[in-house]
Amino acid sequence: MKILVCISKTPDTTSKIAFKNGNTQFEEAGVQWIINPYDEWYAFVRAIELKEKDPATILHLVTVGTPDADPIIRKALALGGDEAIRINATSDDSYFIAAQIAEVAKSGSYDLILTGKETIDYNASSVGGIIAALLDTPFISLATKLELNGTTATVTREIEGGEEVNEVSLPVVISCQKGVAEQRIPNMRGIMAARTKPLKVVEPAAIDSLTKIVSYELPPAKAGVKLVAADNVGELVRLLHEEARVI
């Protein structure tokens, strides 16, 4: 069994979001970087659990990023996994990122490729589907449970108004969300072991980006809360009906 987990470096949830150079670039000063929570807590931790069940499993991580992604890759390796691959490029285009990962995936012949359901910075939710299309394998989105039985994956996934259970033969690409696994905290042994695990750097393949970010905007500031007295609930209903017109 060979598993590839795609991870991305994202600003910490609590980071202040600001832009520079005429709102064309994300202001990275003062930002704390983390592994995208969907990638780490769900996709990667589930992969680690699968390796714990079957120690012969080979578990690789992959990310598209410049050397400043190395600290979060080491952090991920402290949780588990055998090796990380960093594709030495930077991009915010889903196709570029997915196509780079698909190149790595092709040469590595992985049975299972996991992603988070989206990243918390660009919120695209696209990389998994593109990888699957480029590899011509099935794509299962928004998984909330994942079990392996030999070469069959049983996946519970979120659909419109409910969930369904899928059975699929490997290889498959699955995007993971809450339910698949629980967040883990690395221990000292893991942190020490991570230092010597291989972090391979590969140069990107020649792939065109199909989108580019022209500019960013911050949403207009809220006008401030209009407080209604606790003994005047009727006034709140009136405001929602007549002023906000939402009920």
């Binding site: 196709y95 696209s126 589907g129 699957a132 299309a133 989105s141 980006s209 989108t211």
Partner: peptide
Amino acid sequence: QTGRAVASVVAAKLKAGIVT
């Protein structure tokens, strides 16, 4: 949910840029 399952796969097949 359906869009998340399908749109990116369609985009890749058509080599189309996608914005979600």
